[in-house]
């Protein structure tokens, strides 16, 4: 029986993992261990629900309800001096529990603190845009939509940003293969030649490391060169190795493969 390979996460996996290996954990500290973070958390908790919070590697991580995202971030920006939104993106957990995790990475310049606000959403659940708080979220959210297909509410220009507008699929999802899917391999063929020429052109070779031994259109085997497009299913003939064209360099141009002898006895 063929081994089952999951379709919801097609990213590269380690080929070997020790059965008894338990991955260690980056320590999560209690929020009370840092006074400033504790007061930040208290400010959020006084108005919104917080499901989990801890300090990891000197940064506060707070899990909130996604419905409160705008409120929490506004509170942090206006009352807690987190004036900059460094980064905003998502993590794909669809294979695990059908959810996306969204994170907002904030920075307070006056207090030199960094905090990460996180929330879970369902696959098709739209998210309120925070573009009204930080203009930079405009582009980050577009990128998030482009890469994960997360829909946005109240976004001024919810369009793909890095991929072409008519691209199919969302590249950073775990279910999207690294080399691209079926639609990706036809994208440029359709664009340049038109759908009606798919037969003639053939799908784009998207695995740049793939070498097909029988493909004489794109590859040739050294020492076995044949005309382009020749059928070599019956095997190809070995070609004479020619290091130089006729009249080339002294000695080398007289090299004849058939007349050379390979000396195997090193003590001759």
């Amino acid at each position: 029986m063929r081994r089952y390979s999951p379709k919801d996460n097609v990213q590269k996996k380690p080929y070997y993992t020790d059965r008894y290996y338990v991955a260690p954990q980056v320590p999560k500290l209690d929020v009370e261990s840092d006074e400033e973070f504790a007061s930040d958390l208290a400010a959020i908790e006084s108005k919104f629900t917080v499901s989990e919070s801890y300090i990891q590697l000197d940064q506060l991580v707070v899990y909130i309800d996604i419905a409160d995202n705008l409120g929490v971030l506004e509170l942090l920006r206006d009352e807690r001096a987190y004036t900059q939104l460094s980064e905003l993106s998502a993590i794909d957990w669809l294979a695990k529990d059908g959810k996306f995790e969204i994170f907002y990475q904030l920075l307070s310049m006056s207090r030199r603190k960094r905090i990460r606000i996180k929330a879970y959403i369902d696959e098709a659940q739209p998210v309120k845009s925070v573009q009204s708080l930080w203009r930079s979220a405009d582009w980050s959210e577009r990128e998030m939509y482009d890469m994960f297909g997360i829909k946005l509410i109240n976004h001024p220009f919810p369009k793909r940003i890095l991929m072409p507008d008519d691209w199919e699929g969302f590249p950073l999802r775990k279910s999207y293969p690294l080399q691209g899917d079926e639609a990706a391999s036809w994208y440029e063929v359709d664009k340049i030649f038109g759908k009606e020429h798919r037969e003639t052109i053939g799908a784009e070779l998207r695995d740049c490391a793939k070498v097909d031994r029988y493909d004489t259109e794109r590859f040739s085997r050294l020492g076995f060169e044949v005309p382009k497009g020749a059928d070599i299913s019956g095997g190809e003939k070995r070609k004479k190795v020619q290091y130089q064209e006729d009249g080339g360099v002294f000695l080398i141009d007289r090299f004849d493969e058939e007349k050379t002898v390979i000396i195997r006895d090193k003590d001759r």
Binding site: Y15, Y16, A23, Q56, R114, R116
Partner: peptide
């Protein structure tokens, strides 16, 4: 061949 396996966790380093 297999690569290092860092602990479970997340980091943002600026």
């Amino acid at each position: 061949t297999q690569g290092m396996r860092p602990p479970v966790g997340e980091v943002y380093a600026a």
